[in-house]
Design a protein around this nucleic acid. Sequence first.
RNA 1: GCCGGUGUAGCUCAAUGGCAGAGCAACCGCCUUGUAAGCGGUCGGUUGGAGGUUCGAUUCCUCUCACCGGCUCCA
Length: 642
Amino acid sequence: MGRLRIRVGGREIEVPSGSTVWDLIGEWGGGSSQEYIAARLNGRLVGLAEPLEEGELELLGWEDEEAREVYRHTAAHVMAQAVMELYPETKLAIGPAIHDGFYYDFDIPVRITPDDLPRIEERMREIVGRNTPLIREVWSKEDALRYFKDQGQDYKVEILEEMGEETVTVYRQGGFVDLCRGPHLPSTGMLKNFKLLSLAGAYWRGDEARPMLQRIYGTAFLERKDLEDYLHFLEEAERRDHRRLGREMDLFSFHEEAGAGVVFYHPRGAILRGIIEDFLKEEHRKRGYQVVVTPHLFKGELWEISGHMDYYQENMYTFEKDGTRYVVKPMNCPGHILIYKTKPRSYREMPIKFFELGTVYRYERSGVLHGLMRVRGFTQDDAHIFCREDQIEEQVAEALDFAFYCLRTFGFDDYEVYLSTKPEKAVGSEKLWEKATAALQRSLESMNIEYQWDPGEGVFYGPKIDVKLRDAIGRLWQGPTIQADFNLPERFDLTYAGPDNRPHRPVMIHRVVLAGIERFYGVLLEHYGGHLPFWLSPIQVAIIPIADRHLDYAREVEKKMKERGIRAEVDEDRQTVGMKIRKAQIQKVPFSVVVGDREVESGTISVRDRTGKDTRGVTLDEFMRRAEEWIAQRARESVWDC
RNA sequence: GCCGGUGUAGCUCAAUGGCAGAGCAACCGCCUUGUAAGCGGUCGGUUGGAGGUUCGAUUCCUCUCACCGGCUCCA
């Protein structure tokens, strides 16, 4: 038997040929086999039980994303085996690892309920206890087809039929055999900490014309603590749920009588919304945008010209009156185009930037609605920049820069950027699309922004840049989008006079920053878990008199604060101080200001911030001075730290 | 829209075919209070809506509306 030379961890090791990765770990002694999940052998991801070949080996532990996927993929297989054992009639679809867990789609003749999950989990533990090896086997496609047909595994057969390869790999663990590219953990016993989380329906291949399968979601971790942390994260996300905060903080509501997907902002909720809107208008004006207002209802004709009737109809609310078709606007662009067209435009005035807090209505299928995050009626901070072709790059870059400024102001520092290309249903020639896409790409590159391609995800009239923002607990949300559009200007025959005094075609840049105000509002609430920065808090100060005799003083403090633009409110309830503090705390009011005999006498206030820190004898002027500072600076933190 | 689940007082939840309940909130009163729940009392419901089965339905069935978790889609 020959020997293989393997470079690993900066050393070169010789092992007998036929050795597996596992064998090498024992020989190498550079760490215990417990730490490793998978390996990369000459760049290829392999399982630990796979045979070595000469070359470069990298051992992968939990910190490696692909290794985590291997681990969770094995968890999916173990779950599939458990389900097969419990429900032998089950047909298996697919079961991949996902971002922080795994799922498997099953066609089970009986209906699974959440009560069944513990039983399945129990069986999984049993399978783990058996410590069955997962054995990789290479089969000919024919053999595989015969086997899975024989087993009645229709979905596997369908997958096989679509595969081009002559040979396929299957993984065998005891009596359970699954078509799978792998790799996997060497044995079920290596799977340690897992939990089944939820149950959902999912179409086979995501196609609603195909059968609905039962999907089970779960997660798995190497370390118990990581699993616990993850479960805590889920609880944390639930605590931050904007729907719950909206109710507790008395910000907004939904009403069955009014219909799904439309939001009612309560007085306090409207204050926050107003602050966001004022901020946007002010910042847009600063940057040369002109604020416009357009109606909610246009005749169908306009949407014929824009192409919406052909490409966006399923999302539009339309109706007929006196024989005329009307559309409740799903987008603001046609309105801004009409304003553009009201007079001859010159190259000298380019770019022309119209901004509108435009409320639009889009039909969304009932099942997708979700609190403020996905609604049917929402307001966009929408702008259309009409410019010359040579200005696109600079205008897109400027818009991006503006967008990042706004996001940072609201407390978001982490982003992911995507460039989306032409979708299947689209207006305009290939050439225009290429031109527009290239312009967006140049802007990103000129700003040194890292981005990823998102093929086919553009809007019907143009490619787009999407910015996704990461919140305080690491989740990504849709944020700004910028679209370059050569198509609508053509459809509406937009022109401007060039230096040659001849008509030229402008380009339109569609762009939103916070995008849907409703969604952003929800994201903002979840990002801060309701503990909004001072400048955004609907009520900034709860003034709490200790006894009735302090009411006059409390009202005086309130009046002075209000005069300085601080949103303060006296809590006049005949309740204990503890109770009133508790109320303010639940409503996430940044400061509770307590006034009693001591304060009345010395003309001071007692200040309690949201962390619970209590400072007595603060002068009103000092407090207001700092409050004004937090507002002016749009500070993220406001703790009383002296 | 589809799959699964849920819908009982303002909120959180009991009651599973036999008189619809509790805590908190609200209201009234007492207490005049020092940093996350003071005490007592009162009010509150066509059990989301419509229809059906039944002597009798919150409970079982059908339809419908809304919500929750997904699929799909999207700002």
